[in-house]
């Protein structure tokens, strides 16, 4: 008997999620435009003078990434039916591998989401590009943290009533360390301080979420 390895199983789940996205285009054609519209609405509401927009641009970008990026992780709560879950469970895929596979798929979508929204923010808000070299690192950290947290919340909520509204409520308050880490990295760079503390903090958050997600996967699959 051959046992497929943990990573083979995880990659199979990732592939399934990517294929599903290719068919439905939910992230590309729904979530992404929604986030971009949000970035467009804010200046309309608070005024379009350049200094104000420059000052709030980076912060707004991260808030929108947090609030709308969650929707990417929520996908599974309403696209996966209970029957589909049961089939996946019956195939004997390690629940932890399933979690990791979903996280990797969400992570890839989130990175794309962040890159496009970053371009939109630079264009609309005329943000200063100080510390842009840090951007890829922070984007990866936020993408990883948010996909871990969002996927965990989505598996906690599962397919229950009002699942797609509940996941953002669970994720939003717990994403505060990520939001602070992301925004303060650039704040520290702007003030000429070291941003290492904030990077470290995000890494700790990511490690903790990864451990929590993998450890709770079996319990959550049983329910």
């Amino acid at each position: 008997m051959t046992r497929t390895s943990f990573w083979t199983q995880a990659m199979a789940i990732t592939k399934r999620d990517v294929m599903r996205e290719r068919r439905s285009g939910e992230v590309l054609w729904v979530t992404l435009p929604f986030g971009a519209i949000a970035l467009l609405l804010i200046p309309i509401a608070i005024g379009t003078d350049r200094p104000t927009l420059r000052a709030i641009g980076v912060g707004m970008f991260w808030v929108i990434v947090m609030l709308f990026g969650v929707l990417i992780a929520v996908r599974q709560a309403h696209t996966e039916s209970q029957a589909q879950r049961d089939v996946v469970a019956l195939t004997g895929i390690d629940p932890a591998a399933g979690y990791v596979g979903r996280v990797i798929a969400s992570f890839m979508f989130l990175i794309g989401f962040e890159v496009v929204l970053a371009v939109v923010t630079v264009a609309l808000y005329d943000v200063p590009l100080d510390g842009w070299a840090w951007m890829p690192l922070v984007m990866v950290l936020v993408g990883a943290g948010l996909s871990l947290l969002g996927t965990l919340a989505a598996s906690i909520v599962s397919t229950g009533r009002s699942a797609s509204a509940l996941v953002p409520l669970l994720v939003a308050p717990l994403s505060v360390p990520l939001l602070i880490g992301a925004t303060q990295t650039f704040e520290a760079l702007r003030l000429g301080r070291s941003s290492l503390t904030w990077t470290l903090m995000m890494v700790i958050v990511i490690l903790l979420l990864a451990i929590a997600g993998v450890m709770s996967a079996r319990t959550l699959q049983e329910s």
């Binding site: 599962s158 717990l174 329910s223």
Partner: peptide, 12 residues
Amino acid sequence: ARAKRAAVMGIL
């Protein structure tokens, strides 16, 4: 199911 999910959330 409710108890298990809530317990994971309670610890998280």
